[in-house]
Amino acid sequence: METTDEARQEAFERRIARGEKIEPGDWMPDAYRKQLIRIISQHAHSEIVGMLPEGAWITRAPNLRQKLVLLAKVQDEAGHGQYLYHAAETLGATREEMIEALLTGKAKYSSVFNYPSLAWADMGIIGWLVDGAAILNQSMLARCSYGPYSRAMVRICMEEGFHKKQGQEMVIRYARGTPGQTAMVQDALNRWWWPALMMFGPHDSESSNSAALIRWKIKTRTNDELRQEFVNELVPDLHALGLSVPDPALRYNAETSNWITGEIDWDEFWRVVRGGGPCNKERLAARQQAHDDGQWVREALAAYAARTDAGRSTA
């Protein structure tokens, strides 16, 4: 039985249209596979690099409860990176290729992690805004057409609910706290607001990948739609807490019920994506060091495996 690629492509598009999940073993166009490897591995790298801004504060948490919460959150990010590397592997990418691409700067990760976390209140703002933005994007990806990616996202979203809430809880506490705490949390908001909005990516009109991703139901909503939902959800809460959003152009449009922000500084966005952010070098150096420092563990496991294999074959 001869099946042409054209017929396969049509059958594939029909499966996508019916809302079926594509699973490992199913036929898929090469471009679909490549797009998925690109976004899943970037997503995995983001989880792994995303441990760094918060990891820096674990030893400086003000009390044991906060320390346990932060430890648990950073540990989750490590696990989420693992789920995602495994999902990318089902498409034929190897762990080594993906880590190599991260360490040589070939693969990207979310630019938001190239900003420094300068104060303890950043832990609250990162949880509420950065994890909140990630959850919006990930809830969409949980419906994506590729089974392994979709399932990893469902699991991650379930676990990340606490990340966002512990951040919001902290912001609520400091916003109603001493003048020093209020100033600290306002300063953190001032620094993270714009990077958080940039997490949704370029405008739809500038996003070269959006059309294909939406056609194949990898994404089901556009960058701008998600960003608008994020702003609409956050602004009233921030105002209720007496915090001010660092955007003089921010206004409410009663007709559309949307909060309209000023323009994002896209020059800054692209500069940070291309490696010129405040922490790009530091983040990659930290990953490289972790990789090098783990060398002895990989060697010890290899020696252990070789010895137990030898033990089994002579037993």
Partner: peptide, 16 residues
């Protein structure tokens, strides 16, 4: 503390 229901942010926001 790993569970979302450990945090009561909705209630807190209503109080605010």
């Amino acid at each position: 503390y790993r569970q979302p229901n450990y945090y009561h942010v909705q209630t807190q926001m209503r109080a605010v």
